[in-house]
Amino acid sequence: MTTWLAVAAIALAGLSVVLFTLAVRRLLTRQAEVTATMLRRYDDRLASFAQTLNDALTSFQSARPPAAPQLEDDPEPMVRALELARERTSADGAIALVTAGHGTPIVATVGLSESETNHIARMGFPDYRGARAIEVAFAGDLVAPEGEEPVRAGLVMPLLGEDEPQSLVGVLTRDRGRRFSEEDVDELQGLVQAARPPISRALNLREADVVPELDLLTNLLDRQSFSAVLEREILRARLAHHPLSLLVVDVDRLTWLNARIGILAADGVLLELAKRLRGVVHRLDYAFRLGGGRFAVVRPGSEGGDARQLFEALRAQLAENPIGDAGIVSVTGGITELLPQDDVESFASRADAALAEAKAARRGSVGVTGGGDRPSRVNGTLQIASAPEGIVLDG
């Protein structure tokens, strides 16, 4: 009996060990499964968090406003601002109009035809009545660039501040169904705020305009006015991206003429020559007497070829109509066209150099430098108003 009890105890002990071992193994397996499950869940959550973070960063980058345009050092801030305005609002064209209340108003456009530019400029400045911007519509009967639809609608707002001269900037579309949104207004307003300081400084509208003095003999603008007017016109040409040419004319053998007919009679020749010069220049040209028998004409909106035609017209006048005792008076000319790197001194010096080369080659001829012998460009992108009736300003 005792033996059977001992055997049963041993068997029970062995079974307990087996059951304990199985229990421990099962527990360890369960813990491994739990650990693996936790690790999988952790990986899934980490991946989900990474994706959420990436989506948030992408959304933030796409939603944040574009970087401020770098216009401070741009030589043509108005033109650059129009390019950016068209790009940021997905428009087909852009226009800026600024007037200082005196002088020639500046009209700058990108992507518009001359007909469209003139039509929009004639509209003048709208009454915003406190609105940030105004949407305008067009009949669609304007002459558009070849192969394109005419402008259909536009969004305009003031370009300069309230205390500045009247101005506007606008973006335009050729799409019949396009309507400008609040986002477009925000984009345009943000750009205007960034562009306003460099444009105001470049226009220099707060300073008084140049007041030219007249030459006592010829009643043309005098030498003291030449640099100031030339500097102003270089600035305007660069702001509006239009050409500028300079013609310098010198009377041939003036010293010999003084000795032959006398100083007073020679002064009469200069006076008559000035009258004939006024007769051939355009009404927007500036004619100067630089001293002695030297004259100059600054031609806004004109290239070297236009200045050459002016010189030829003056030379023909003198050849066909002798001047008193002096007879036929011969003149030699020098022409140059504004280059991107020019200042007043280099621009004028190049015209003088062209004049000197012409005199050395043959009196009565004209020398051209600085691109003046290129074919005339089509002025359909940016322009200056050519006459008071060309652009009517309301308000």
Score class of each variant (00 low, 15 high):
Ala360Pro: 05
Glu114Asn: 09
Asp306Gly: 11
Ser227Asp: 09
Ala6Gly: 12
Ser365Phe: 05
Phe311Ser: 11
Tyr128Thr: 03
Val136Gly: 00
Tyr286Ala: 13
Ser365His: 12
Ala137Glu: 13
Arg315Tyr: 02
Gly111Arg: 09
Leu230Met: 14
Ala354Gly: 05
Arg26His: 15
Arg80Lys: 10
Ile328Trp: 02
Asp222Ala: 15
Gly154Gln: 04
Ala354Ser: 07
Thr117Phe: 05
Met1Asn: 08
Val211Leu: 04
Val156His: 01
Pro126His: 11
Gly333Arg: 03
Ala13Ser: 11
Leu247His: 13
Ile261Arg: 00
Glu231Leu: 06
Gly364Leu: 07
Ile95Gln: 11
Pro77Val: 02
Leu214Gly: 00
Val110Gln: 07
Ala358Gly: 00
Val110His: 14
Val344His: 03
Pro65Glu: 06
Arg174Asp: 07
Tyr128Ser: 01
Ser225Thr: 01
Trp256Cys: 11
Pro165Trp: 01
Leu15Phe: 12
Leu235His: 08
Gln166Pro: 00
Ala296Cys: 00
Leu22Gly: 08
Val281Arg: 10
Asn118Asp: 12
Val344Ser: 10
Phe295Pro: 08
Leu264Val: 06
Leu310Gln: 05
Ala259Met: 07
Pro105Val: 09
Ala94Gly: 14
Glu357Phe: 00
Val392Leu: 15
Thr99Cys: 11
Ser59Arg: 06
Val156Ala: 06
Asp343Trp: 15
Glu320Thr: 07
Gly395Ala: 14
Val269Asp: 10
Ser90Met: 12
Val192Ile: 14
Thr332Gly: 00
